[in-house]
């Protein structure tokens, strides 16, 4: 019981200072979980990250679940994940209550209009950063363009293709194309 409580408190703390998400969390987790508490090793942590990245859901959340599971099984996973969510939920509920009351003020509206411009730029930066890792050859470029067109202009088609369908299709095509590519590479060697 004491262990579970400690797990919970640790992840409440991590959830509260996890700015920027994803890899921004790695140094923080290293300090809290590897150096201070010795709950896991840096190698394991890196594994959790690489898997957390390629499974659905938010990376930071996936890593919390992993470490909780390792410490105390299913119960530990639940406790760590819930702990991690506490801070963000409380903060957003406070902000939502604030926005509901203050959104009509002109100053707030001007501020958010300015902020949206910055958000646009942040998204462009994120795409540029991910581009190098994701669009690596003509096949992935073609997939990028096709999915972009289908998703962005689906409003003009008579049927809108749900994003989930695009994700599943892309996963299947990825398996098929990488098989074909590997076979070709092996054929070339022989």
């Amino acid at each position: 019981m004491k262990d579970l409580w400690e797990l919970f408190v640790t992840f409440v703390k991590i959830g509260c200072v996890n700015f920027g998400g994803g890899y921004a969390m790695l140094p923080l987790l290293e300090r809290e979980l590897v150096d201070k508490r010795k709950w896991t090793t840096m190698d394991d942590l890196r594994d959790y990250f690489s898997i957390g990245q390629c499974t659905p859901g938010i990376i930071a959340l996936n890593v919390s679940t992993f470490i909780g599971e390792k410490r105390a099984g299913v119960k530990g996973a639940l406790v760590a994940t819930l702990g991690f969510l506490m801070g963000p939920i409380a903060i957003i509920l406070a902000i939502a209550a604030f926005l509901t009351n203050f959104a009509q003020y002109e100053v707030v509206q001007h501020a958010f209009a300015g902020i949206r411009v910055c958000v646009c730029v942040l998204i462009i930066q994120a795409v540029l950063k991910l581009w190098k890792k994701s669009v690596v050859d003509p096949i992935t470029l073609a997939m990028y363009l096709a999915i972009f067109a289908l998703h962005a202009f689906s409003g003009w088609l008579s049927v809108k293709i749900p994003a989930a369908v695009l994700v599943i299709t892309a996963g299947i095509l990825g398996i098929v194309f990488s098989r074909l590519k590997n076979r070709k590479a092996e054929g070339g060697k022989a």
């Binding site: 949206r116 411009v117 795409v127 991910l130 470029l141 994700v167 996963g171 990825g174 398996i175």
Partner: peptide
């Protein structure tokens, strides 16, 4: 799993690009 991600990565950023355009429509 590796193959699936070969396809999922470009799909993911393609949709993020489209989302960026959505923000631009409001902001720019």
């Amino acid at each position: 799993v590796e193959g699936a991600f070969y396809g999922l990565r470009p799909a993911s950023i393609a949709m993020i690009t489209a989302a960026g355009i959505n923000v631009a429509k409001v902001a720019l």
